[in-house]
Nucleic acid binder design. Structure first.
Length: 349
DNA sequence: TCATAACTAGACTTTACATCA
DNA sequence: AGTGATGTAAAGTCTAGTTAT
C-alpha cells in the first residue's frame, strides 16, 4: 500500500517566510484562515557587515533603493505602499508648541525636524552637515539645545576618541560633586537616565534608520547634548530590544502554527479512519469506477462523487479526497486556504 | 523586580601602510 | 621607478551577553 499525504496548497511551502528575505510580510495563522493581526519583519539573522556597509553607502549617496530596515509592528497591519512615506507617528508632543528661544529645548517635534534637515543636508553635502553639526549659536542645530550644562570629556579612551571635539553635556540637575568623582573614574559607571524628550527623539530617529553612520551619530549627539557614545549605545540597546520582541512574536507565531498543524493532523487521522471504514464497507470497490470524495470545508462531511474512467476497473483504482478546498473564495480573500489532498494510490489497501 | 544605560568580548570590515614580484 | 598583489595592524562598528542603576 502506498499512502501519500499532501498538506497545504500545492506548490506552496509550509512556511513561506522561511524562504523570504528579511522583508516586512503579512503573517497568517496557517490553516485557521485568520490573520494574526500583526505585522512582523522576519530577518535572516545578523546582516553581514558587507550588507551593512552597502546600506550605509546607499544612505550616504542618497539612494533609497534599499529595503527598509527590519521593523516590528505589533499594531494591526495596514500596509503602506512601497515608496510612500510612512504614516506620521502618533506622538502627543508633535502638536505641542515649544519655545524656540535660543538655548531652550524646543521639543522633539521641532528637534526632529531640525535633525531631519541636518541629516538630509549631510546626506547630500558633507559640508552642510558639518555646518549643521557645528555648535555655532546661530546654526540651526544649535537652536535645539536643551537646558543642559557642559560637563567633562569622556570616561575612557574609547569615549574620548568617539567624542572627538563635540561638547559633552548633561543635565546639570543630575549632577553633583560625588557624581563627578564617579564620572572621573573614582567609582563605577554612572548611569544616566535619558529624559522623555531625549528618548522620544531617539525613538523617532530609530524609526527612520536602525543604524547610524558616524555623522548621523554625531549630529544626534549634538542635538540631544549627549555623547556620541551614548547615542551609539542607545541604538545598540534599542536594536537588541527590537530583536527580543521580534523573537517573542516569532515564537508566538510558531506556537500558533504548531497548534494549527496539530489540529490538521488530528482531522486527517479522523478522515483516514473514515476512509478505511468506507473501504471495509465496500470490499468490491476495486471493481467500481474511481470515486472522488470531497469534503465540505464548512461541515467537514465527505461527499462522494463517482467518475467513470478508463482505468476504473483496473486494479489501480484511485480514491482521491480533497478537503477544505474553498478555492472559490480563496482568490478573493487574503486568508490562507488549506487544501489537503489525500491520495490513496492503491495497490493493496 | 523590571527597564535600561553602560559595559565587555569577540567577530567582522575597512583603511592605511609596508613589502614583494 | 611605477604598479598591482598581498599581508598586517589599527580603528570602527556590530551582536550577544552581562552588569549596574
Amino acid at each position: 500500500m502506498e499512502l501519500a499525504l499532501s498538506l497545504g496548497e500545492a506548490q506552496k511551502p509550509l512556511f513561506p517566510f522561511l524562504d523570504k528575505s528579511p522583508q516586512q510580510l503579512m503573517v497568517h495563522a496557517g490553516g485557521g484562515n485568520k490573520d494574526l493581526g500583526f505585522c512582523m519583519g522576519l530577518g535572516g539573522g545578523r546582516r553581514s557587515e558587507k550588507d551593512h556597509q552597502s546600506n550605509e553607502d546607499e544612505r550616504r549617496s542618497g539612494s533609497s533603493s534599499s529595503d527598509p530596515p527590519v521593523q516590528l509592528d505589533l499594531l494591526p497591519f495596514s500596509p503602506v505602499p512601497r515608496g510612500q512615506p510612512p504614516a506620521q507617528p502618533r506622538f502627543p508632543w508633535l502638536a505641542q508648541n515649544f519655545t524656540s528661544e535660543q538655548g531652550s529645548f524646543n521639543g522633539p517635534a521641532k528637534g526632529l525636524e531640525v535633525h531631519r534637515k541636518s541629516l538630509a543636508a549631510e546626506e547630500t553635502e558633507d559640508g552642510a552637515a558639518a555646518a549643521a553639526m557645528s555648535s555655532s549659536p546661530n546654526s540651526t542645530a544649535s537652536s535645539f539645545q536643551m537646558d543642559f550644562a557642559v560637563y567633562r570629556s569622556g570616561r575612557n579612551k574609547r569615549d574620548f576618541e568617539a567624542g572627538n571635539n563635540e561638547v559633552e553635556t548633561e543635565r546639570a540637575s543630575s549632577r553633583n560633586g560625588s557624581d563627578e568623582e564617579l564620572e572621573n573614574g573614582l567609582g563605577g559607571r554612572k548611569k544616566l537616565r535619558l529624559t522623555k524628550d531625549q528618548s522620544a527623539f531617539l525613538e523617532e530617529s530609530f524609526k527612520e534608520h536602525h543604524t547610524l553612520n558616524p555623522k548621523q551619530k554625531l549630529a544626534l549627539a549634538n542635538q540631544l547634548n549627549l555623547r556620541p557614545r551614548q547615542v551609539e549605545v542607545w541604538f545598540q540597546n534599542r536594536r537588541a530590544r527590537t530583536k527580543l520582541k521580534q523573537t517573542e512574536v516569532d515564537c508566538e507565531y510558531l506556537k500558533r502554527c504548531c497548534e494549527n498543524l496539530t489540529e490538521e493532523n488530528r482531522r486527517l487521522h479522523k478522515e483516514l479512519q473514515e476512509l478505511r471504514a468506507l473501504k471495509t464497507s465496500q470490499p468490491f470497490y476495486m471493481q467500481l469506477p474511481a470515486t472522488t470524495l470531497t469534503m465540505c470545508p464548512s461541515c467537514e462531511r465527505v461527499v462522494t462523487t463517482t467518475t467513470v474512467t478508463p482505468t476504473a476497473a483496473t486494479a489501480t483504482a484511485t480514491t482521491t479526497t480533497t478537503m477544505a478546498a474553498a478555492t472559490a473564495t480563496a482568490a478573493a480573500s487574503t486568508t490562507t486556504t488549506t487544501s489537503t489532498t489525500l491520495t490513496l494510490a492503491k495497490a493493496g489497501i
